[in-house]
C-alpha cells in the first residue's frame, strides 16, 4: 500500500466536511433560485406599474407639449418608454420624442458609457442611444471603428436603421482594413440607410480598393440609384474582376438601355464574365 494516498481520507473530518460543504452549496443554490424568482417578479411588476403610470405622458410629448414634472424614477421610466416608442414611429412623432429625450440629457450618460472599456457596456449604451442616433452621426461613426467586432456590427445596424446616409462611405470602407465589419452587415446597413443619390457614396465608387468599390457599385444597383449609371459604367473598365462583375450586375438591375454602349465596349476577361455580359446585353436590347 502506498502510504501517502490513504492519508488523505483519514484527515479527520475531511470527507464529512466536503459532504457538508456540498450540502450547504446545494441548499444555497436552491435558495438563490427561489429568491431570484421572487425578487424578479416583484421588480418586473413594479416597473410595469410605473410604465403604465407614465405612459399617458408620451402622448403629451407627441403632441409637442411638455409633460408635468415627474419624480426621478418615473422620469427615468418615461425616458426608457419614450426611447422604445421612438424606434417604432417616424416623422413628426419621432422628432417630438427624440427632441424631448435630448432635452432630458438622455444622450449624456449613454455617450459616456460608449467609451467604457467593456464591450458589453458599450454595446448596451449604443443600443439605448439608437433612437437619437441621427442627431449624433460623429459618435456613431466612431463606434463603427470600435475595437470589438460585435460592437462595430451593432453600430452599422444602428446607422442603417436610423437612415444615416451620411455614414455610407465610412460603412463601405469598413469592408477592408484593420477593423472590418462583415460585408453582409455593411450591405444590410447601407440598404436600410437608403441613400437617395450616388453622391452620398462619396468617393467609394472610385475607391482604389477593389472590394470597397465593388460593394459600392453593387449596392448602388440594389438601391436602384439611377444617377449612378455613369459611375457603374466606369466600373466596367476596372482591372478587378470583382468590380467588373458588380458593375454588370448593377447595370442589369438598373435596366437602362443607355448602358448598352458601355457594355458592348467592355473587354471581358473570362468566359463567365462574357456569358453574364451577353445575358445583360440581351435583356437590355429586348427591353
Amino acid at each position: 500500500m502506498i502510504p501517502s494516498i490513504p492519508a488523505i481520507p483519514t484527515i479527520p473530518g475531511l470527507a464529512m466536511a466536503l459532504l457538508l460543504t456540498t450540502a450547504t452549496v446545494c441548499g444555497l443554490l436552491a435558495l438563490i433560485v427561489v429568491a431570484e424568482r421572487i425578487i424578479r417578479t416583484a421588480l418586473a411588476h413594479r416597473e410595469e406599474k410605473r410604465r403604465d403610470r407614465v405612459r399617458p405622458h408620451i402622448l403629451t410629448i407627441v403632441d409637442g407639449d411638455t409633460p408635468a414634472t415627474l419624480p426621478r424614477r418615473d422620469r427615468a421610466a418615461l425616458s426608457r418608454l419614450v426611447a422604445d416608442t421612438a424606434s417604432q414611429v417616424r416623422g413628426e412623432d419621432r422628432e417630438a420624442l427624440t427632441q424631448w429625450l435630448i432635452g432630458q440629457q438622455f444622450h449624456r450618460a449613454h455617450l459616456r458609457r460608449m467609451k467604457s472599456p467593456f464591450a458589453l457596456t458599450r454595446a448596451r449604451a449604443l443600443d439605448r442611444f439608437a433612437p437619437i442616433a441621427e442627431h449624433a452621426p460623429r459618435s456613431i461613426e466612431r463606434m463603427l471603428g470600435d475595437r470589438d467586432l460585435r460592437v462595430r456590427s451593432l453600430a452599422a445596424q444602428v446607422a442603417g436603421r436610423s437612415g444615416m446616409a451620411a455614414l455610407v462611405p465610412e460603412l463601405l470602407r469598413r469592408t477592408e482594413g484593420t477593423r472590418v465589419i462583415p460585408a453582409r452587415i455593411i450591405s444590410m446597413a447601407v440598404l436600410r440607410a437608403a441613400p437617395s443619390s450616388i453622391a452620398e457614396f462619396g468617393d467609394t465608387v472610385t475607391d482604389s480598393n477593389h472590394r470597397v468599390r465593388a460593394l459600392a457599385l453593387d449596392l448602388a444597383g440594389q438601391l436602384n440609384l439611377v444617377d449612378a449609371r455613369r459611375a457603374i459604367e466606369a466600373g466596367l473598365d476596372s482591372p478587378s474582376a470583382d468590380v467588373r462583375m458588380a458593375s454588370v450586375r448593377s447595370i442589369q438591375r438598373l435596366g437602362s438601355p443607355l448602358s448598352l454602349a458601355a457594355l458592348k465596349r467592355m473587354e471581358t476577361q473570362s468566359p463567365e464574365e462574357l456569358f453574364h455580359t451577353e445575358v445583360v446585353i440581351h435583356e437590355l436590347t429586348v427591353g
Partner: peptide, 29 residues
C-alpha cells in the same frame, strides 16, 4: 473505510448535484 466512501460519494453525486442546481440557476436568471 466510510471516509473513503464518503469521498467517493462527494466527487460523484455531490458535484453532479451542484452542476444540476447551477444549471437551474442559470435558466432561472
Amino acid at each position: 473505510t466510510w471516509q473513503l466512501f464518503a469521498l467517493a460519494f462527494f466527487v460523484s453525486v455531490g458535484l453532479s448535484l451542484v452542476s444540476s442546481l447551477a444549471s437551474v440557476l442559470i435558466e432561472e436568471s
